[in-house]
């Protein structure tokens, strides 16, 4: 019994949160193109603590609709670096208007995951 409790304590504590590193601050702005439900989005990526723009990161964005979890399996799109430091751009096609949660996965010089809820209207 003692071994089981000790084992459980090791499992419980061994995989806690990672130590503090700089996290990502993400700003997303989207505009609907001439094709309905197709959006051109600008993403700005910076360090949360440093405030400095993050360049050379691999950024993937996956939309999901919170009211219909898992119902819209839209593929993740890659955000490409744009002309300014920390600026990235991506195009995505949604299934319908409404509130979407965009999951932004950042790898490279900064590793983080950020989810933002945005309302897409006609």
């Amino acid at each position: 019994m003692r071994t089981v409790i000790a084992g459980m304590a090791v499992i419980a504590l061994s995989t806690g949160p990672a130590l503090a590193k700089d996290r990502a601050a993400v700003k997303i702005e989207c505009k609907e193109t001439e094709t309905s439900l197709v959006y051109d989005c600008a993403l700005h990526l910076s360090g949360k603590k440093s405030g400095k723009p993050v360049e050379g990161a691999k950024v993937a964005v996956k939309p999901d609709m919170p009211t219909m979890p898992g119902a819209h399996n839209i593929r993740a799109v890659e955000a490409k670096p744009a002309d300014k430091p920390g600026a990235y751009g991506f195009k995505m096609k949604l299934d319908m208007y409404g509130i979407w949660a965009l999951k932004v996965t950042v790898t490279g010089p900064l590793r983080d995951i950020v989810v933002q809820k945005i309302e897409f209207r006609k």
């Binding site: 919170p66 949660a101 999951k103 989810v115």
Partner: peptide, 8 residues
Amino acid sequence: QTTVYPEN
């Protein structure tokens, strides 16, 4: 998902 909302 890493984030959950009440409306989920």
